[in-house]
């Protein structure tokens, strides 16, 4: 799309995958947004950090394993992924447990990231 204004979009993800449809819906909107050459960031807070957990295998529940799609984001030029430090700690997770490269932010820095956006979409 050839517009002159590029806006800063932040997708806020706070739900675990599979139990509800929020995580998958968010990912689909992210991919669509990528087509419009905007400045897209993704934030993962609370249970949202579980979306990025390595080793997901959905054969047993007969749902699509969309965790693999997070690895495609780089090819869509979406490279700004932020994860909430406190959420990871509460869940006993570290960066090494996640399937993509992320920047870890504490809650205060997360708040500043939100303040810095033009558009926020919350899932």
């Amino acid at each position: 799309m050839s517009g002159d204004t590029i806006k800063k979009f932040l997708f806020v993800n706070r739900k675990a995958p599979y139990g509800t449809v929020y995580a998958l819906e968010s990912l689909e909107v992210v991919l669509i947004t990528a087509a419009f050459d905007q400045d897209v960031s993704l934030a993962f807070l609370d249970d949202g950090v579980y979306q990025l957990k390595k080793g997901q295998n959905t054969k047993g529940i007969e749902m699509k394993n969309f965790s693999l799609t997070y690895r495609a984001l780089e090819g869509y030029d979406i490279e700004k992924l932020f994860v909430e430090k406190e959420a990871m700690e509460a869940r006993g997770l570290t960066k090494e447990d996640l399937l993509v490269d992320v920047t870890v932010l504490d809650r205060q820095a997360m708040g500043q990231l939100m303040d810095d956006q033009d558009v926020i979409l919350s899932f």
Partner: peptide, 11 residues
């Protein structure tokens, strides 16, 4: 197979 999506044409 690798990413579970069909890529956009640009990608």
């Amino acid at each position: 197979d690798e990413y579970q999506i069909a890529p956009a044409v640009r990608v």
